[in-house]
């Protein structure tokens, strides 16, 4: 280091003596319209437009009245902004005999998502912690089974699960669906937590054991406080996954318990009467709002958690 500094001083002195003080110095200026910049920003811009245009069309259409929509220009902004379609989508749209809009589906989805997310994350984090830190008999087998579970297509398991739930007497109920969501979240979440806990320094775990902490004390007092990022990642995966689920919702529940996604489908695909595009658009945005908010609120933590898991394990 010192040598380098000396060399630089010497070089500078040489420059000064030969009168080249006006030569290149500091940051090299870069032209704005270089090929590199055009390709870079062009690609990014195109990708952004590709994803944003549909959203734009939906928002714009949902704020138009039906006569304006029939004029046919889907890209033009609304001449007269109306919130009528939003109110209708939320409180009045009909599915079958019920005409209370998406609000009921929203309530169902909340009642399905919250317990499913909490229970699945709780169990999976304890599983992952046990697999990463404690040696026990059959641990390899258990882990292998879980990993295989992550790769089995859902469709294979639907009918057996229907029978199991029926035998348990909870087919068609919310608790039945919650159990299904919890089980199907288990492989990927356990893997996620196991890898995260395995990436924490092993010596911390050893130190806690020497200090006399047992299984639960180490989990709650040492591991949990260090694991906020991975819990946020798990929450995002589970909230968006369960909220957006359609298949399990339609298979395992009765119409009065349909989650928001199923109800949205029923509204949009209803064959009677006029197709109300503005109402459909508003209903779709309403349904997608929850995952969207989750992403916005926790985006930073999400990236950190993914990176934390990716470095090791």
């Amino acid at each position: 280091m010192a040598d380098q500094a000396t060399l630089n001083t010497v070089a500078a002195a040489a420059d000064a003596s030969s009168g080249s003080l006006s030569g290149p110095r500091g940051n090299r200026p870069r032209p704005i319209f270089s090929t590199r910049n055009i390709v870079l920003y062009g690609t990014l811009g195109l990708a952004a437009i590709y994803y944003l245009v549909p959203l734009y069309v939906m928002v714009v259409t949902s704020l138009k009245s039906m006569p304006e929509i029939r004029m046919g220009n889907i890209f033009s902004p609304p001449v007269e902004i109306t919130f009528e379609p939003w109110v209708k989508a939320w409180a009045q749209a009909c599915t079958g005999l019920n005409c209370d809009g998406l609000s009921r589906g929203f309530g169902n989805s909340v009642r399905i998502t919250i317990p499913s997310v909490i229970i699945s994350i709780l169990i999976a984090s304890i599983n992952g912690y046990a697999l990463a830190n404690w040696r026990f008999k059959g641990m390899e087998t258990f882990f292998t089974v879980l990993v295989i579970g992550a790769f089995i297509p859902y469709q294979v398991m639907i009918y057996p699960i229907v029978i199991v739930l029926r035998e348990m007497g909870i087919y068609g109920t919310l608790s039945g669906l919650i159990i299904v969501h919890t089980i199907f979240g288990m492989p990927i979440l356990t893997l996620l937590f196991r890898n995260y806990f395995a990436s924490l320094p092993e010596e911390l775990f050893k130190a806690a054991r020497v200090d006399g902490a047992g299984f639960w004390n180490i989990y709650f007092r040492i591991m949990l406080p260090m694991s906020l990022p991975i819990f946020v990642v798990a929450m995002i995966i589970q909230i968006t996954g369960i909220w957006n689920d359609f298949l399990f919702g339609v298979v395992f529940t009765r119409p009065e318990y349909y989650p928001m996604t199923v109800q949205l489908n029923n509204i949009v695909n209803s064959v009677q009467g006029v197709k109300e595009y503005n109402v459909n658009m508003a209903a779709t945005i309403l349904t997608g709002l929850v995952p969207l908010i989750v992403y916005f609120v926790s985006g930073k933590l999400f990236v950190r958690g993914i990176a934390a898991g990716a470095v090791k394990g």
């Binding site: 320094p201 050893k206 130190a207 054991r209 020497v210 200090d211 006399g212 007092r221 040492i222």
Partner: peptide
């Protein structure tokens, strides 16, 4: 015996301090 019942204290290469606790809490944890 469990580590805590052996009458030993251990110091690790990576210090292994509990990051979320203050020094005082680290000392008194056990």
């Amino acid at each position: 015996e469990e580590p805590k019942d052996r009458g030993i204290g251990m110091v690790f290469q990576s210090y292994a301090l509990y990051p979320q606790m203050t020094v005082e809490k680290n000392l008194s944890f056990g």
